[in-house]
Every structure is written in structure tokens, then in C-alpha cells.
Nucleic acid binder design. Structure first.
Lengths: 120, 120
DNA sequence: GTGTTTGCAAACCGTTTGCATGTCC
DNA sequence: GGACATGCAAACGGTTTGCAAACAC
């Protein structure tokens, strides 16, 4: 993988925020610094970085991919009503059934769905 | 909600299988019995049934919506490699952090991601 | 110089929707 | 008869991709 300033910018944007932006949000931020960057480049790099394990891709209820620059072991809670994504740093115990079935959970990666405090 | 034979057919197809078909798979099955049924009708009814809580909609890694006719309390495991969806009927303990944050999990609905036995 | 990356725009594809017609009650 | 549901096809929107030019090394 060769250096590119576009990719470096994208990495800095994702790693520098603590929410879970979509490709479009990252594209907007990137354009403020590098007005000529294209959406295709953003998507290509997000896919690349996700494949390399440098960022995490989250599939949510809004049919957009969300990206997380924090690759430390943690889970996510997604509000079914407002779509908000909340980090959970104290991971759940893996259910016994998962190991019984010979399944391996990646880094306790787990998505809980429910309602956040505001949407109860 | 008024009766329609298309909707009854769709319900029977989903409830009659124990996997997690996509709209397209349901559409194919439906056409074998009702060759004139349209894809739009399948989508409209799946959305309706999901909103009514009669079926469950799952967002997975393959960018297609999957549907589950089993609405009993259970979680899912999705293989990151082959996309297979496995039911987990012994739900995980909700992490303490979730209640600490004032979040409510819907019916223990939770998606674990990892590798299935074949993809290890 | 060679192979990677970019910007641009078009293509892709799962899903949604507008509308005229058909169906249920 | 009136509200709801359907079939059809077009539109939608997020993501991917083909290609020529630009860039890294």
C-alpha cells in the first residue's frame, strides 16, 4: 500500500472523532480540508482500511455503512428509533451456546439493538 | 389490515422455513405458487409485517435485508466470511453497562459477528 | 518507468414508490 | 362504494467501478 495524502486525511478524520460517521460524513469533513477529494476515493479507502483491519465497518438500521476508528475490543448498542450508536466497552460474556456450536466471536464484536434513554 | 392472498402466502413462506431468507428468496418461493406476484408486493408486505412485529428484519454484512419468521426471544450469530446466520436461543446476559447507561435491549436482540465452524 | 491511486461519472443493485387497476368487505 | 392491496415500471440512494490522468517510489 502506497502513501496517499487522501488516505492519510481519511485516517485522521476517522481516528480523530469518537462517533461512528458514514462515508458521506467523512467525505464532507474531508472536503473541508481537501476540496478536490472525490467520494469514490473515500469509499475506496474506507473499504481498504476496513479490509486491513485499521477501522471497523458497522451495518446499522439506516442502510448506510458506519465506520469506527476505534478498533479496541468493544461492542455497540444501536437505538432502533433514532439510530444512535453507543460504544460498550465492558463486553458481554459470550453465551455458552456460541462456543458449544464451535463459533468464534471476533473480538467480542456484538451489536445490541434497543432503545436509548431519549427514545424510551 | 385487509386480507390478501399474497400476504398470506408470504407469511406462510417465512414462517414455514427456519433460515433467514432475503426478499429475493421469498419472492422466488412465492412465484412458484403465485407466478404473478410482484417484487414490490413482497417488499411492501415484508415491511408491513416487520412493522407489525410479526417477523424480524435483520441487517447483515451482505447489504441485503434478511427476514426471520421466528419472533421468539433469541439472538443471532452472523459469520463474517460466508454470511451464514445462526440462531442463538440461549441469549447472552445483557452487559451491566447497558442498564447503567439507561438503555433497553429489545427482547435480547443481539447480533454476534465472527466465524462459523466451516470458516475458521 | 512501473504500478498504485485519484477524480470523475456512469453503472450497479437492493429497496421504495407513483399510479392505474383489481380486490376485499 | 370506498378503502386498501396489487402489478408494473420507474425512481431512489448508497456503494462500486471503468478509465484516463496524476502520483509515489
Amino acid at each position: 500500500m502506497r502513501y496517499s495524502k487522501q488516505r492519510e486525511l481519511i485516517i485522521n478524520i476517522i481516528k480523530g472523532r469518537c462517533d461512528h460517521p458514514t462515508a458521506d460524513m467523512i467525505y464532507s469533513s474531508a472536503r473541508e480540508i481537501e476540496p478536490n477529494i472525490s467520494l469514490g476515493t473515500v469509499y475506496r479507502n474506507l473499504k481498504l482500511l476496513s479490509d486491513e483491519g485499521e477501522i471497523i465497518t458497522l451495518e446499522t438500521v439506516d442502510k448506510k455503512l458506519h465506520y469506527d476508528g476505534d478498533i479496541s475490543r468493544h461492542s455497540h448498542f444501536i437505538c432502533e428509533d433514532c439510530g444512535k450508536i453507543i460504544d460498550l466497552f465492558r463486553p458481554a460474556n459470550t453465551p455458552r451456546e456460541i462456543s458449544d456450536l464451535g463459533l468464534t466471536v471476533s473480538g467480542e464484536k456484538c451489536i445490541y439493538y434497543g432503545k436509548c434513554q431519549e427514545c424510551q
